[in-house]
Amino acid sequence: MWLVLCDPADRAAVWAYEGLRARGLAPLELLSPQTLLGSTRTAHRVDRLGARFTLTLPDGRVLDSRDVDGVLNRVAAPPFGYLPFTTHADAEYAARELSALLLSLLTCLAPVSINPPYGYGLCGAWRSPAEWTALAIRAGLPVPPARVSSDPDAEPPAAPAGRGDVLVLGEHVIGAPAAEDEEPYVRLARLAELDLLGVDLLGVDLHRETGTGDRQPAVFAGASPLPDLRPGGDPFLDRLFKHLTALSPGAP
């Protein structure tokens, strides 16, 4: 079976789930982290054979991690909400225990997951803008000039309007500007240790500087392990279907 793991409010993940169903991926389940943590029975084993789990879902079905062939992991954060404890210390302790459990469950699925959990991120590493910019430079993407001020009251420079996302899935790039080399996007995903990466670009208009109306190549504006998938349209869904069906160890 295949899984799409996401928060119920993640519309991009629901869109991907519906697109995968339409392409015949089955059996396919849409599950939330709330459902995983709200199971009526959880058996988690770690031994010389590896880590695995079985969960009894709220509707009575049993989910065995060994039966999972592929996962689109969109779990951004533990779904704590309000924990009904009388003291903050008790709530904090429960939150840490639930977070550890969710991380462990996702790690069991890591070998067949798109964006498995990382040391500081449940669906891949979350990085600061400066860290992403440093990786983009190493990958060979053009980046805008950085402005740094020692004045704590200085206003940060306003960012130009975003041009749109480029999606990287494995070795494939969807949405890169025409005539641009796609390899830097793939290198950025590798450097970030992500199977799926969204890259935001900015197009800079040089007309006011040159009077020619020419545009310089799009520059890097940010990246995320949890991008909006919908701009990729059908080409992205087709590639996602192929990627997921190839994740299982028994796949050809």
Rank of each mutant, 00 (worst) to 15 (best):
L3T: 06
V4L: 03
C6A: 15
D7M: 03
A9I: 00
A12M: 04
A13C: 02
V14Q: 15
V14R: 15
W15S: 07
A16H: 14
E18K: 14
A22L: 08
R23T: 10
G24Q: 02
A26H: 12
E29S: 12
E29D: 12
Q34V: 09
Q34Y: 07
T35L: 07
G38D: 14
S39K: 04
S39D: 03
T40Y: 11
T40N: 09
A43L: 08
H44Q: 03
R48A: 13
L49W: 15
T54H: 06
L55S: 00
G60F: 10
V62I: 07
V62N: 03
D64W: 00
S65G: 05
S65V: 00
D67F: 00
D67W: 07
G70W: 03
N73S: 06
N73P: 07
P79C: 06
Y82Q: 13
L83G: 05
P84Y: 04
T86C: 04
H88V: 11
A91R: 14
E92D: 11
A95S: 05
R96P: 01
L98Y: 15
S99Y: 06
A100H: 01
L102Y: 07
L103E: 15
L106D: 02
T107D: 11
P111L: 05
P111W: 06
P116K: 04
P116H: 09
Y118R: 13
G119D: 12
Y120M: 00
L122G: 04
L122M: 02
G124E: 07
G124K: 02
A125D: 03
W126V: 06
R127M: 15
R127D: 05
E131N: 02
E131G: 04
E131R: 04
T133S: 12
A134H: 12
A136K: 06
I137C: 12
G140W: 10
A146G: 11
S149K: 13
P152L: 01
E155D: 10
P156F: 00
G162L: 10
G162N: 08
D165F: 12
L167Q: 10
V168S: 07
G175R: 07
P177H: 11
E180T: 15
E182H: 08
Y185W: 04
Y185Q: 02
Y185I: 02
L191N: 04
E193T: 09
D195V: 06
G198C: 08
V199F: 06
L201H: 08
L201A: 11
D205G: 13
H207G: 12
H207R: 15
R215F: 10
R215V: 14
F220W: 14
F220G: 11
D228G: 05
D228H: 07
L229A: 13
P231D: 09
P231M: 13
G233V: 14
D234G: 09
L237A: 12
L240E: 08
L240A: 11
F241Q: 01
F241D: 01
K242L: 11
K242S: 09
H243Q: 12
L244Q: 02
A246K: 04
L247D: 04
G250V: 07
G250H: 13
